[in-house]
């Protein structure tokens, strides 16, 4: 399934985030994969996704500069591709 920023996503139930100086380490207990979230803003955003109707609404709420949306969407798409994010 391709990533769609106009719909709602949330972290998979079996994913845990561990804060690190560069952002966070994410571990998926289900598929045993490890991911590196390499920006503190990305970590905050990922954690906030659950409360929003769409990814873009979460961007808005987090006051992320529109010019940075594409790089955030790219990062989120790759998280969704490995099942770290699921549609809400």
């Amino acid at each position: 399934m391709t990533f769609d920023a106009t719909t709602a996503y949330r972290l998979h139930d079996r994913v845990a985030l561990r804060p690190e100086p560069f952002g966070a380490l994410a571990y998926h207990y289900g598929n045993r994969r490890l991911n590196f979230l390499r920006a503190p803003e990305l970590v905050a955003l990922v954690e906030s996704l659950d409360g929003h109707d769409s990814v873009r609404a979460a961007f808005d709420a987090a006051e992320i500069d529109q010019r940075r949306w594409p790089s955030f969407e790219k990062a989120l798409a790759s998280l969704a591709a490995s099942d770290f994010l699921v549609t809400a």
């Binding site: 991911n35 979230l37 790219k74």
Partner: peptide, 28 residues
């Protein structure tokens, strides 16, 4: 911000390639 990129890894292998562009190696 392109540098924010997610690096995925099999825990066993720590596959983080390409590390060189990412600067993740320095963080490690």
């Amino acid at each position: 911000m392109t540098d924010m990129g997610i690096r995925e890894s099999r825990p066993d292998n720590l596959v983080l390639s390409p590390v060189k562009q990412s600067g993740l190696g320095d963080q490690m």
